[in-house]
Design a protein around this nucleic acid. Structure first.
Length: 489
RNA sequence: GGCCCCAUGGUCAAGCGGUCAAGACAUCGCCCUUUCACGGCGGUAACCCGAGUUCGAACCUCGGUGGGGUCACCA
């Protein structure tokens, strides 16, 4: 396999044009989005155009609202297309179902050119072609038909499809993929697949070629499932006498070692991640890294930085497993970078959804910014404000700080008396009060702080230290909880 | 099953014939003038197997194994 380098400028004879061509069959899958991202980055990196095309030739799988989802995802992700259904720059329409007459015209033209032929075989005959593996390779039966016979059947109104006419005999079709290098497939291994269905709609095999050519697409960037059928598409370009585009195939994103990330994997779609409190830029950043690595190995990058650093030789050829853990980490990094106000604004819906009511969430947000990876972690972090009851006494125990139940009980007792007459209820004063109380009683301040924090929340991991928790809870609630905790030890 | 493609720690990955085989996530430990977190420092952990080419192979070749894709009037 020969490994191609990055695009040399002298190879770019035509303006770079890439496209993203999703089919409106549901939500926006992460793997699909990544393909769009790479097509976008490649175009922008090379000063070219990024085109959106809707591939809806399969009416059976069409899902209502899916087109809108494609638009909104692209907007949120920051991938603005230069051309698309709502931005016609003269290559439209950009929705395949609206291009129907075009495909028929080109299919007929291809028949004239010898690259395709009419086929009238019925389902029964096709079924009978199955071999021991159930593979039904078409036998070019209708290629034998004379022009007169074809015309007669057509005049009769017999249903037909148009099939690609793969050359017979030896020979192979090959191309050089920007990511995979040389790929070739023998003619003998290709089938005369259907180009135009009996309903007059094209199959993907045909529509993508006609559209890519008509829309001036110079670089075809798509999933690796097309790797081995691409030689066939190239034959189509050749038959038409069209210039072949350059291809860049992308390996799939896996759910685990053997399963592809599929639409059935509920969490694998963009909308869902957004709803769970992932930031669009974090998602984009993460998926860009799933299968691509910049020269300098940077990880956290803005879209603009990624475009700047984008190069095809950094794209990996093997599949990668989606790791939500790492995406969470990256998202956390983006969260920490937010201004306090921005974090509060974005987190507000999650605070509102928590069980805690009536607290100063703006203040709590300050504490949470460095403590959550995704916004939907917020409710579980603040629920202790509303829910406080019996908890496991063992969480008081801390060997290194020498905290046992006896020390815990004493710490709480000391704290109660130190706090009871305190009027200035701020974090700073509270902290100093705890420290002073510890010193006055010959205890380590960590012993007090550790115990109070737990006594106040009933949790081992909390959104802040003892003084911060006390400040948020307020004097009355703080004392109430300390007294309760004291009574339980 | 035929054909196409892939193979570095648990995960993402750097590596392009000579490296003590980077870095990040996760994990573990330590530090943060003894609270949670943040942060800092450090540890554990990898070239699928077998031949060949070469003075020398994670890198090149072949075979095996494993995995993915494809073989639709789906895209």
């Amino acid at each position: 396999m020969s490994r191609p380098g990055a695009i040399m400028s002298d190879n770019v004879t035509r303006r770079v044009r890439t496209r993203f061509a999703p089919s409106p069959t549901g939500f926006m899958h992460i793997g699909n989005l990544r393909t769009g991202l790479y097509a976008y980055m490649f175009a922008k990196k090379n000063g070219g155009d990024f085109i959106l095309r809707i591939e809806d030739t399969d009416q059976e799988r069409y899902v209502e609202g899916a087109v809108e989802k494609i638009y909104s995802t692209l907007v949120k992700a920051g991938l603005d297309y230069d051309e698309g259904p709502d931005k016609d720059k003269g290559f439209g329409p950009y929705v395949q179902s609206e291009r129907k007459p075009l495909y028929k015209e080109y299919a007929e033209k291809l028949v004239e050119l010898g690259g395709a032929y009419y086929c009238f075989c019925d389902k029964e005959r096709l079924e009978s072609l199955a071999d021991e593996n159930g593979v039904k390779k078409y036998d070019k039966h209708c290629l034998q038909l004379s022009r007169e016979e074809v015309d007669a059947k057509l005049a009769e109104g017999k249903p037909y499809v148009i099939r690609q006419n793969i050359p017979q005999g030896e020979g192979e079709s090959s191309y050089n993929d920007l990511v995979f290098g040389d790929v070739s497939v023998a003619y003998a291994d290709m089938e005369d697949t259907i180009l135009l269905k009996s309903d007059g709609m094209p199959t993907y095999n045909f529509a993508n070629v006609v559209d890519d050519h008509l829309m001036g697409i110079t670089y075809v960037i798509r999933g690796s499932e097309y790797l081995s059928s691409t030689p066939k598409y190239n034959l189509l370009y050749d038959s038409f006498g069209w210039e072949r585009p350059v291809y860049m195939h992308l390996s799939p994103i896996m759910k685990d070692a053997t399963r592809k990330l599929s639409k059935r994997f509920g969490d694998a779609n963009f909308e869902d991640f957004i709803a769970r409190g992932f930031l669009p830029q974090a998602i984009i950043n993460y998926i860009a890294l799933l299968g691509w690595c910049p020269k300098d190995n940077r990880e956290k990058m803005t879209l603009a930085e990624m475009i700047e650093a984008f190069s095809t030789d950094g794209i990996s050829i093997s599949a990668s497993i989606f790791d939500e853990m790492k995406m969470r980490w990256l998202n956390g990094e983006y969260l920490k970078e937010l201004s306090d106000d921005e974090f509060y604004r974005l987190g507000k819906p999650y605070f509102d959804a928590s069980k805690a009511k009536g607290y100063d969430f703006k203040k709590i947000a300050l504490l949470l910014k460095t403590r959550v990876d995704i916004l939907s972690d917020i409710p579980s972090k603040v629920d202790f404000l509303a829910e406080y009851s019996e908890f496991d006494q063992n969480i008081y125990l801390h060997q290194k700080m020498k905290v046992d139940l006896e020390v815990a009980k004493k710490s709480i007792e000391i704290s109660i008396s130190a706090l009871e007459n305190l009027t200035d209820w701020t974090n700073q004063v509270l902290f100093e009060t705890f420290v002073a109380a510890a010193e006055a009683n010959a205890m380590k301040k960590g012993q007090i702080l550790w115990v109070v924090r737990i006594a106040l929340t009933g949790q081992l991991v909390t959104p802040g230290g003892a003084s911060e928790m006390a400040e948020i809870l307020g004097k009355a609630e703080t004392l109430k909880r300390l007294k309760f905790a004291f009574s339980r030890i």
